[in-house]
Design a protein around this nucleic acid. Structure first.
Lengths: 196, 196
DNA sequence: TAAGGTGTGGACCGATCGGTACAAACCGTA
DNA sequence: TACGGTTTGTACCGATCGGTCCACACCTTA
């Protein structure tokens, strides 16, 4: 067993993730990637196969380590509606403070949906569905606690929350001012109160 | 006065608009553009100067002939809340019927916000503000008619509607199923009823 | 210490990117 | 019919795209 790689694969994927996150799949060139990952082209292709494969690895890592981790933490909160509120708060605060927010890698990839492979498309669709189910689960818990009307359609409401979330994530990438984002967030808060 | 162009500039911009609309600014190559516009590179550069200039012409044309025209027609309706409802209905129906919907060129450009010039950024921001003001105007009319509570903050609500609209436009590009889109739209309808 | 497989550096590939140079084709005017 | 300015076709530009090739550096095992 000869010569171990002198870089850490997981670290390298993290660095690649940041590039794809900021520039999108097509927008991230191999130069960008190798520069950020601090390895050269041969090592990249030897370790990951192709740009597409590397992207899938990065997307997968984002999905588990960023997206899923965030949702899991929110799920631990006692008040499920508060969890939803907090989820919106976080991304709005992030967009307000960080002037060049990258948004969410999964949602960014959803925007470029049709330029991706069937495999990637399926992965993205599943990820979005998972967010939707996260919302639906919290709403069901809200019903059990009496915070949400039992007449409410959880799935439908979850689909709405997802579309609402996507809108704020996209506009948070720079096109909308923090003030307006916060106003829109305020309206979502108020609508959450009216679920009872 | 020698030799008139043997293509119509406005027609050519229309064709270029479709390419930028479908592929984005970076994603649209000069080959794509010249092929769609049915002119060659020399004619393109002679008539429009550069890819960036051509894009601005296309964006401007979209803004007046597609976006502004659509909002104007909706504004003519008697019932202002019905106008908002219709606006959402149209884009959802479009996304449901046309499996490769391009979304809205202005919103697509807003997504790529930071990779555009300051001039383009300003134009996009102004366009989004215009949509916001369109919503706010309808809400004010709703107040006058008694369809909307006078306590409602029109600006804030308009900002929320814009973010909601953007979310559905982005997800309508393929990542969300028509069924889910329609469910989300249904929730927006219900929220519009609760503005009183 | 020699062998053998693996990782790395760098040159190189054809294709494509946005953009330019220039001459030929063109048509209204004189 | 000759001129003059404009449009158009084509060849070409350097840069960059994603990706490959191969010699060499390297470490483990025998």
């Amino acid at each position: 067993m000869p010569w171990a790689k002198d870089f850490d694969e997981e670290d390298a994927i993290d660095l690649a993730m940041a590039v794809f996150w900021a520039k999108g799949y097509e927008g991230a060139s191999l130069n960008d990637l190798t520069a950020a990952m601090q390895i050269n082209k041969s090592s990249l292709y030897n370790a990951f196969g192709s740009k597409k494969d590397l992207f899938m690895r990065a997307l997968l890592k984002y999905d588990t380590e960023v997206r899923h981790a965030m949702l899991s933490k929110l799920q631990e909160l006692e008040d499920p509606i508060e969890a939803i509120r907090l989820m919106f708060d976080r991304v709005i605060d992030e967009s307000s403070l960080d002037r060049d927010t990258k948004g969410c890698l999964l949602i960014n990839t959803a925007f470029e949906f049709r330029e991706h492979s069937a495999e990637t498309q399926a992965f993205v669709a599943a990820g979005l569905l998972d967010i939707e189910e996260f919302f639906a689960g919290l709403l069901e818990r809200g019903k059990a606690r009496g915070d949400v009307s039992r007449d409410l359609d959880s799935t439908e409401t979850a689909q709405w929350l997802l579309s609402q979330f996507v809108g704020l994530r996209v506009l948070g990438r720079g096109a909308m001012t923090p003030t307006s984002l916060q106003a829109a967030r305020g309206m979502v808060h108020r609508q959450l109160e009216h679920l009872l």
